[in-house]
Amino acid sequence: MDDKNSTESNLDYQGGRAAVRDGHDSVRREKPEPVAGGSNKVLISWVVGAGIVLVMAGGYLGGYSNFFDSSDSYIYPGYVAAARPVVEGVDTDAEQEPWIEVWMKDGKKVYTNCIACHQAAGTGTPGLFPPLKGSEWVDGGTERLGMIVLSGVLGPLNVSGSTYNQPMPAWGALNDEKLAQVLTYIRREFGELPEGQSGVVTKEMMKAAREKHGKRTSPWTEADLLAIPGDAELPGVEVDLNTGQPVAGE
């Protein structure tokens, strides 16, 4: 610093606490302020990276946006907008959704577990996964059905005239409510129910099924299942489809 004397006198903070002359050299030692402009290197690696990012972003937008066409589609697979909750013991007025609709919507959510094999429309995959539509197992008694979902099926199984031989997983890990909902859903949605039946499976019925089923750990075979009478129903009271409450007079 050639001009040291004049610099120092100018650096004196007269009014301030700090006398620059007493060793305040932080200002002096620093480099000039950075200015705009300068190097224009645009790294090839950044450009390549930018290309990848653009492709990723395009794929992302295409994949998740559903092409902006519907306000009724959601990213969460199988998401169904929540139904208005039904308050127990409260009179359902006309505006409130009937209990069965809520129950079916929840059932549809649980059914996302089954779509991979039985398909959204319950048609199954020929030769591999049996259909639920038109299946005598679905239309028949609820006891067999409850047992099937609780511990799955292994070995050949005859469904509407064809034989299938793939394992059906056990769903006992789902709680009673969810299982009751999904069974109600497949019965009402895909089944052809006998006259006068609502197809509803209630939580109590599923609970009874679990008790009957006991601690069985192995999957069912066709023979075991056929040993259960085809019209055996799980015990449970009939419920009002609007309120979900037991039908009066019970």
């Binding site: 946006s65 009724d72 589609s73 959601y74 990213i75 969460y76 998401y79 929540a82």
Partner: peptide, 13 residues
Amino acid sequence: FLGGPFPSWMPAI
């Protein structure tokens, strides 16, 4: 809110 109850185009953008 990716999995939230927003129409899918909103979180997608």
